[in-house]
Protein backbone atom coordinates (compact mmCIF):
# COMPACT_ATOMS: atom_id res chain seq x y z
CA UNK A 1 0.00 0.00 0.00
CA UNK A 2 2.82 2.38 0.96
CA UNK A 3 6.26 1.66 -0.35
CA UNK A 4 9.58 3.45 -0.24
CA UNK A 5 12.05 2.45 -2.93
CA UNK A 6 15.73 3.22 -2.36
CA UNK A 7 14.91 6.56 -0.77
CA UNK A 8 17.70 8.92 0.30
CA UNK A 9 17.49 12.30 1.95
CA UNK A 10 20.60 14.37 2.53
CA UNK A 11 20.82 17.63 4.43
CA UNK A 12 23.44 20.34 3.78
CA UNK A 13 24.69 18.48 0.70
CA UNK A 14 28.17 19.51 -0.42
CA UNK A 15 29.12 21.18 2.85
CA UNK A 16 31.15 19.92 5.82
CA UNK A 17 27.83 19.36 7.60
CA UNK A 18 26.53 17.01 4.91
CA UNK A 19 24.42 14.35 6.56
CA UNK A 20 22.33 11.52 5.21
CA UNK A 21 19.13 11.52 7.28
CA UNK A 22 17.82 8.59 5.27
CA UNK A 23 20.11 6.46 3.12
CA UNK A 24 18.98 4.10 0.38
CA UNK A 25 16.01 2.92 2.41
CA UNK A 26 13.42 0.53 1.00
CA UNK A 27 10.33 -0.65 2.81
CA UNK A 28 6.80 -1.75 2.06
CA UNK A 29 3.80 -1.43 4.35
CA UNK A 30 0.57 -3.34 4.04
CA UNK A 31 -2.94 -2.00 4.49
CA UNK A 32 -3.98 -2.23 8.13
CA UNK A 33 -0.43 -2.35 9.45
CA UNK A 34 0.29 -0.56 12.73
CA UNK A 35 4.03 -0.06 12.59
CA UNK A 36 6.07 1.35 15.46
CA UNK A 37 9.33 2.99 14.48
CA UNK A 38 12.13 3.28 16.99
CA UNK A 39 15.72 4.49 16.87
CA UNK A 40 18.13 6.81 18.62
CA UNK A 41 18.42 10.52 17.88
CA UNK A 42 19.44 11.15 14.29
CA UNK A 43 18.54 7.65 13.15
CA UNK A 44 16.10 9.13 10.64
CA UNK A 45 12.73 8.47 12.31
CA UNK A 46 11.19 11.88 11.78
CA UNK A 47 12.86 12.30 8.39
CA UNK A 48 11.05 9.24 7.09
CA UNK A 49 7.69 10.53 8.24
CA UNK A 50 8.45 13.94 6.75
CA UNK A 51 9.38 12.34 3.42
CA UNK A 52 6.15 10.35 3.40
CA UNK A 53 4.13 13.43 4.36
CA UNK A 54 5.87 15.58 1.74
CA UNK A 55 7.36 18.17 4.09
CA UNK A 56 10.43 17.72 1.89
CA UNK A 57 11.28 15.55 -1.08
CA UNK A 58 13.96 12.85 -1.30
CA UNK A 59 17.12 13.35 -3.39
CA UNK A 60 16.85 9.79 -4.64
CA UNK A 61 14.28 7.05 -4.74
CA UNK A 62 10.52 7.01 -5.05
CA UNK A 63 7.56 6.82 -2.69
CA UNK A 64 4.26 5.27 -3.76
CA UNK A 65 0.94 5.29 -1.95
CA UNK A 66 -2.04 3.23 -3.09
CA UNK A 67 -0.20 2.56 -6.34
CA UNK A 68 0.41 6.23 -7.18
CA UNK A 69 3.84 7.83 -7.22
CA UNK A 70 3.73 10.64 -4.64
CA UNK A 71 7.48 11.32 -4.47
CA UNK A 72 7.08 14.95 -5.53
CA UNK A 73 3.43 15.61 -4.70
CA UNK A 74 3.12 18.81 -2.62
CA UNK A 75 2.46 18.28 1.08
CA UNK A 76 -1.00 19.87 1.04
CA UNK A 77 -2.15 17.61 -1.81
CA UNK A 78 -1.09 14.44 -0.04
CA UNK A 79 -3.09 15.47 2.97
CA UNK A 80 -6.28 14.05 1.45
CA UNK A 81 -4.88 10.57 2.11
CA UNK A 82 -2.22 11.12 4.77
CA UNK A 83 -3.08 12.56 8.16
CA UNK A 84 -0.66 13.47 10.92
CA UNK A 85 -0.19 14.10 14.61
CA UNK A 86 2.96 15.96 15.62
CA UNK A 87 5.27 15.83 18.62
CA UNK A 88 4.59 19.43 19.61
CA UNK A 89 0.94 19.74 20.72
CA UNK A 90 0.99 23.37 19.48
CA UNK A 91 1.51 22.26 15.89
CA UNK A 92 -1.59 20.09 15.47
CA UNK A 93 -4.24 22.78 15.81
CA UNK A 94 -4.68 26.46 14.94
CA UNK A 95 -4.43 27.91 18.44
CA UNK A 96 -6.34 31.11 17.88
CA UNK A 97 -9.25 29.43 16.17
CA UNK A 98 -12.16 27.77 17.90
CA UNK A 99 -12.23 24.06 18.66
CA UNK A 100 -15.13 23.49 16.24
CA UNK A 101 -13.39 25.53 13.55
CA UNK A 102 -10.33 23.29 13.85
CA UNK A 103 -12.52 20.22 13.49
CA UNK A 104 -14.28 21.76 10.50
CA UNK A 105 -10.92 22.49 8.85
CA UNK A 106 -9.89 18.86 9.29
CA UNK A 107 -13.29 17.67 8.09
CA UNK A 108 -12.60 19.41 4.78
CA UNK A 109 -9.19 17.83 4.32
CA UNK A 110 -8.92 16.70 0.71
CA UNK A 111 -12.14 18.45 -0.31
CA UNK A 112 -12.59 21.62 -2.34
CA UNK A 113 -12.96 24.68 -0.16
CA UNK A 114 -15.34 27.23 -1.57
CA UNK A 115 -17.60 30.05 -0.47
CA UNK A 116 -19.95 27.91 1.60
CA UNK A 117 -20.01 28.65 5.32
CA UNK A 118 -17.00 27.16 7.11
CA UNK A 119 -19.03 24.95 9.45
CA UNK A 120 -22.58 23.58 9.31
CA UNK A 121 -25.05 22.64 12.02
CA UNK A 122 -25.01 18.93 11.05
CA UNK A 123 -21.23 18.93 11.31
CA UNK A 124 -21.45 20.51 14.73
CA UNK A 125 -23.67 17.64 15.91
CA UNK A 126 -21.32 15.12 14.33
CA UNK A 127 -18.36 16.71 16.13
CA UNK A 128 -20.16 16.55 19.46
CA UNK A 129 -20.79 12.83 18.94
CA UNK A 130 -17.13 12.30 18.09
CA UNK A 131 -15.84 14.37 21.02
CA UNK A 132 -17.91 12.63 23.69
CA UNK A 133 -15.99 9.29 23.65
CA UNK A 134 -12.73 11.18 24.31
CA UNK A 135 -14.04 11.70 27.82
CA UNK A 136 -12.46 15.14 28.12
CA UNK A 137 -15.61 17.22 28.18
CA UNK A 138 -14.54 18.96 24.98
CA UNK A 139 -18.04 18.52 23.49
CA UNK A 140 -19.16 21.35 25.78
CA UNK A 141 -16.35 23.65 24.73
CA UNK A 142 -16.85 23.94 20.97
CA UNK A 143 -16.12 27.66 20.93
CA UNK A 144 -13.00 27.66 23.05
CA UNK A 145 -9.75 28.62 21.32
CA UNK A 146 -7.55 25.53 21.13
CA UNK A 147 -4.64 27.58 22.46
CA UNK A 148 -6.38 27.43 25.84
CA UNK A 149 -6.44 23.61 25.91
CA UNK A 150 -3.83 21.46 27.67
CA UNK A 151 -1.21 19.53 25.70
CA UNK A 152 -3.03 16.24 26.22
CA UNK A 153 -6.39 17.70 25.15
CA UNK A 154 -4.81 19.14 22.04
CA UNK A 155 -3.19 15.82 21.09
CA UNK A 156 -6.49 14.01 21.60
CA UNK A 157 -8.20 16.61 19.41
CA UNK A 158 -5.51 16.33 16.73
CA UNK A 159 -5.92 12.55 16.74
CA UNK A 160 -9.66 12.91 16.24
CA UNK A 161 -9.05 15.39 13.42
CA UNK A 162 -6.57 12.97 11.83
CA UNK A 163 -9.18 10.19 11.84
CA UNK A 164 -11.67 12.14 9.69
CA UNK A 165 -12.30 11.19 6.03
CA UNK A 166 -10.74 7.70 6.12
CA UNK A 167 -7.11 8.54 5.46
CA UNK A 168 -5.00 5.83 3.81
CA UNK A 169 -2.26 6.49 6.29
CA UNK A 170 -1.88 7.95 9.77
CA UNK A 171 1.55 9.30 10.74
CA UNK A 172 2.29 9.77 14.44
CA UNK A 173 5.56 11.57 15.09
CA UNK A 174 6.39 10.99 18.78
CA UNK A 175 2.99 12.40 19.52
CA UNK A 176 3.20 11.60 23.26
CA UNK A 177 6.81 12.71 23.84
CA UNK A 178 5.86 16.19 25.07
CA UNK A 179 3.24 14.92 27.54
CA UNK A 180 3.57 13.84 31.16
CA UNK A 181 3.57 10.03 31.62
CA UNK A 182 -0.04 9.81 32.78
CA UNK A 183 -1.39 11.89 29.91
CA UNK A 184 0.90 10.10 27.45
CA UNK A 185 -0.63 6.79 28.51
CA UNK A 186 -4.17 8.10 27.98
CA UNK A 187 -3.32 9.52 24.56
CA UNK A 188 -1.78 6.18 23.55
CA UNK A 189 -4.91 4.34 24.65
CA UNK A 190 -6.97 6.75 22.63
CA UNK A 191 -4.62 6.25 19.67
CA UNK A 192 -5.18 2.52 19.74
CA UNK A 193 -8.93 3.03 20.01
CA UNK A 194 -9.11 5.45 17.08
CA UNK A 195 -6.78 3.35 14.92
CA UNK A 196 -8.85 0.22 15.58
CA UNK A 197 -12.20 1.95 15.09
CA UNK A 198 -11.23 3.46 11.74
CA UNK A 199 -8.94 0.58 10.68
CA UNK A 200 -6.17 3.04 9.95
CA UNK A 201 -2.82 2.05 8.54
CA UNK A 202 -0.46 3.68 11.02
CA UNK A 203 3.21 4.54 11.35
CA UNK A 204 4.09 5.58 14.89
CA UNK A 205 7.50 6.97 15.71
CA UNK A 206 8.38 6.68 19.38
CA UNK A 207 11.28 7.16 21.76
CA UNK A 208 9.86 4.62 24.13
CA UNK A 209 10.91 0.97 23.62
CA UNK A 210 8.13 -0.36 25.79
CA UNK A 211 5.50 1.47 23.76
CA UNK A 212 7.13 0.33 20.53
CA UNK A 213 6.81 -3.26 21.72
CA UNK A 214 3.37 -2.94 23.28
CA UNK A 215 1.64 -1.29 20.32
CA UNK A 216 1.21 -2.35 16.71
CA UNK A 217 1.87 -5.50 14.73
CA UNK A 218 5.27 -4.58 13.36
CA UNK A 219 8.36 -2.91 14.81
CA UNK A 220 11.10 -1.22 12.84
CA UNK A 221 14.35 -0.08 14.38
CA UNK A 222 16.32 2.52 12.46
CA UNK A 223 20.00 3.27 12.61
CA UNK A 224 21.98 5.74 10.49
CA UNK A 225 19.10 6.34 8.13
CA UNK A 226 18.28 2.77 7.34
CA UNK A 227 16.37 -0.19 8.74
CA UNK A 228 18.36 -2.21 11.24
CA UNK A 229 15.60 -4.45 12.54
CA UNK A 230 12.19 -5.31 11.16
CA UNK A 231 10.15 -7.51 13.47
CA UNK A 232 6.53 -8.51 12.96
CA UNK A 233 3.90 -11.12 13.69
CA UNK A 234 4.44 -13.72 16.39
CA UNK A 235 8.04 -12.70 16.89
CA UNK A 236 6.99 -9.18 17.82
CA UNK A 237 4.42 -10.43 20.32
CA UNK A 238 7.08 -12.21 22.36
CA UNK A 239 9.63 -9.40 22.10
CA UNK A 240 11.08 -7.89 25.29
CA UNK A 241 13.15 -4.78 25.86
CA UNK A 242 16.20 -6.92 26.74
CA UNK A 243 15.83 -8.87 23.47
CA UNK A 244 15.65 -5.66 21.53
CA UNK A 245 18.76 -4.22 23.17
CA UNK A 246 20.70 -7.46 22.63
CA UNK A 247 19.76 -7.65 18.97
CA UNK A 248 20.70 -4.03 18.47
CA UNK A 249 24.12 -4.64 20.02
CA UNK A 250 24.71 -7.78 17.91
CA UNK A 251 23.77 -6.03 14.67
CA UNK A 252 25.39 -2.67 15.09
CA UNK A 253 28.36 -3.68 17.22
CA UNK A 254 27.62 -0.97 19.74
CA UNK A 255 25.70 -0.61 22.94
CA UNK A 256 22.32 1.06 22.77
CA UNK A 257 22.38 4.32 24.61
CA UNK A 258 19.89 3.99 27.43
CA UNK A 259 19.60 7.73 27.83
CA UNK A 260 18.44 8.23 24.28
CA UNK A 261 15.85 5.51 24.23
CA UNK A 262 13.57 5.35 27.16
CA UNK A 263 13.25 1.90 28.60
CA UNK A 264 10.35 2.62 30.87
CA UNK A 265 7.51 5.02 30.60
Amino acid sequence: MLSLNKVSKVFDAGTVNEKYAVKNLSAAFAKGDFVTIIGSNGAGKSSILNLIAGVYFPEEGTITLDGADITRTPEYRRADRISRVFQDPMVGTASDMWLEENLALAYRRGKRRGLRWGITETEREFFIEKLKPLGLGLEKRLSVKTGLLSGGQRQALTLLMASFNNPSLLLLDEHTAALDPGTAGKVLELTEQIVAENELTTLMVTHNMKDAIAYGNRLIMLSAGNILLDISGEEKQHLTVTDLMQRFADLSGEELDNDELLLTS
Binding site: L105, G114, L115, W117, G118
Partner: peptide, 28 residues
Amino acid sequence: LFFGTEIGCSIRATGSNEKMARAQGINT
Protein backbone atom coordinates in the same frame (compact mmCIF):
# COMPACT_ATOMS: atom_id res chain seq x y z
CA LEU B 1 -18.88 36.77 5.80
CA PHE B 2 -15.83 36.00 3.68
CA PHE B 3 -13.65 34.95 6.61
CA GLY B 4 -16.42 32.69 7.85
CA THR B 5 -16.51 30.70 4.59
CA GLU B 6 -14.51 27.54 3.95
CA ILE B 7 -11.85 29.43 2.07
CA GLY B 8 -11.87 32.26 4.63
CA CYS B 9 -11.37 29.77 7.46
CA SER B 10 -8.51 28.17 5.57
CA ILE B 11 -6.85 31.59 5.22
CA ARG B 12 -7.17 32.13 8.96
CA ALA B 13 -5.65 28.71 9.60
CA THR B 14 -2.79 29.59 7.24
CA GLY B 15 -2.02 32.68 9.32
CA SER B 16 -2.50 30.95 12.64
CA ASN B 17 -0.52 27.76 12.02
CA GLU B 18 0.98 27.10 8.61
CA LYS B 19 2.15 23.57 9.39
CA MET B 20 -1.28 22.58 10.63
CA ALA B 21 -2.91 24.19 7.60
CA ARG B 22 -0.78 22.21 5.17
CA ALA B 23 -1.40 19.01 7.13
CA GLN B 24 -5.13 19.67 6.67
CA GLY B 25 -4.67 19.92 2.92
CA ILE B 26 -4.68 23.69 2.65
CA ASN B 27 -2.65 25.31 -0.12
CA THR B 28 -0.97 27.89 2.10
